[in-house]
Write a protein that binds this DNA or RNA. Structure first.
Length: 434
DNA sequence: TTTTGAGTTGTTCGA
DNA sequence: GTCGAACAACTCAAA
């Protein structure tokens, strides 16, 4: 008879320290085997040089080394989770499976299926809140329905915040409960159909930025933002640590940005339709122009609007774009070019290392005006004015648009005043009889 | 139930 | 150059 074990399943929480589910697994009383699955359902949709796969791969390799220092190991599998789990149950006597909550539509379905499957096998499936301070039903209005406006959401989120919710889970005290094992396999990137990306990943060091964040965050040439998106996405940074650091540094604006992340996660949880449809349904009546060649020009950074082109080229070359510029390019695509916000959302999903479905959909719908708590539709960013305000010395533009100021630079794809009047008319017509 | 104040990030126009 | 109002009403949240 094999000895019963617990399994901890890593997904978007790729760290050993301060990890809720991992902590509870280690305290379960059974030896813990850590597991990661490269999910074929997800990977099959990605290009072979997807940088996020490289990031995950490197992180997984680091976790494996770290676990080996404690005479344990990380079991790494490649395939569809349902099939992998059947294999695992054949190889091990599993008493319980531990993991952390995952809130996106695909993940919810996967975990619902897992729960059903494991229950039928008489195996406990225990899941924990880890990637947010407050999840799904924790921040609600008095009538128990979810907030759709940020400010009152944040008021409650902030009022409820206390050290109980931000303290670290001391996993390291219980490493002795890891399952002793060694030489577990690690499939290569190549076997899984990927190659190593040439992009570099943002370092996890944000503390020095917090003091000046409020003052500098809006100026793309300054690099005044913290670049933690990727680390929050894959869990190489604990949200509890980020919030503790925000409070300690008295960086209130940064703290509220962390709450924005949870606000949009709450929206996606309670209104999953909004990943694909406009939150305000009447906005799906808009007659988008959806011109393919204009979309291509936008993607490639050839619109003839320097601030837009700079942003898109930064995205294409680095997998990251400054937040201020994300708003500008999103407004430009949806308003100036009248291209469906979903096209832009999909492009960002392909390119952004820090892609987070909830924030991305929320941000795009905000820009389009179709979202909860969105910018009014008549608020059309003027790229020239945005440049004057936020890149007055054109430093950001010159960094990314090398031919700026020469004859080689593209002519504006559409004239601003004309585009503005066009979008106001089209939106007005779509929204008039609703 | 009704009322009241407010709503991430903007732009344009006219005084 | 600077400032306030208009943009367009609407919906949300809470008292």
């Amino acid at each position: 008879m094999k000895k019963a074990i617990s399994i901890f399943w890593f997904r978007r929480d790729l760290r050993l320290t301060d990890n809720a589910g991992f902590y509870h697994a280690l305290k379960s009383g059974h030896p813990v085997l850590p597991l990661f699955i490269f999910d074929k359902n997800i990977l099959d949709k990605l290009p072979e040089d997807d940088a996020r796969v490289t990031f995950i791969y490197q992180t997984i390799a680091d976790l494996k080394k770290e676990l080996q220092k404690h005479d344990s190991d990380l079991l790494v599998k490649y395939g569809k989770p349902e099939k992998i789990w059947s294999e695992i149950l054949g190889d091990y006597e599993v008493a319980a499976v531990y993991t952390n909550h995952d809130y996106e539509p695909y993940a919810r379905e996967r975990d619902d299926n897992m729960a059903e499957f494991l229950t039928s096998e008489k195996i406990a499936f225990k899941t924990y809140k880890d990637q947010v301070i407050f999840e799904k039903g924790e921040i609600l209005k008095a009538d128990k329905t979810p907030y759709t406006v940020f400010t009152p959401f944040y008021k409650q989120w902030h009022a409820k915040l206390n050290p109980f919710y931000t303290k670290a889970y001391p996993t390291q005290k219980y490493y002795k409960n890891l399952l002793p094992c060694k030489d577990l396999p690690l499939p290569s990137l190549k076997e899984m159909g990927f190659e190593k990306s040439k992009l570099s990943f943002p370092k996890l060091s944000y503390k020095s930025k917090l003091d000046s964040y409020a003052k500098e965050r809006d100026f793309p040439a300054l690099d005044g933002t913290t670049h933690i998106g990727l680390h929050l996405r894959f869990g190489t940074l604990s949200i509890r640590k980020a919030v503790r650091d925000a409070i300690e540094a008295k960086s209130n604006i940064w703290l509220s940005e962390l709450a924005w992340r949870e606000f949009y996660m709450s929206i996606l949880w309670h209104f999953p339709y909004s990943a694909a449809d406009s939150f305000k349904k009447q906005y799906d009546k808009i007659k988008w122009r959806n011109n393919e060649s204009e979309f291509k020009a936008w993607c490639e950074g050839n619109t003839g609007y320097p601030i837009v082109d700079a942003g898109m080229r930064q995205l294409n070359q680095t997998g990251w774009m400054h937040n201020r510029v994300r708003m500008v390019v999103a407004s430009f695509l949806t308003k100036h070019l009248l291209i469906d916000w979903r096209w832009g959302e999909t492009y960002f999903a392909e390119k952004l290392l820090d892609y987070e479905m909830a924030s991305n959909v929320g941000g795009w719908q905000w820009a389009a005006g179709s979202g909860n708590d969105a910018a009014p539709y008549f608020r059309v960013f003027n790229p020239e004015l945005q440049t004057k305000k936020f890149d007055p010395k054109l430093e950001y533009i010159k960094k990314w648009v090398l031919e700026f100021g020469t004859k080689k630079y593209a002519q504006p794809i559409v004239e601003h005043t004309f585009a503005r009047e066009r979008v106001l008319k089209v939106f007005k017509e779509a929204l008039a009889n609703s």
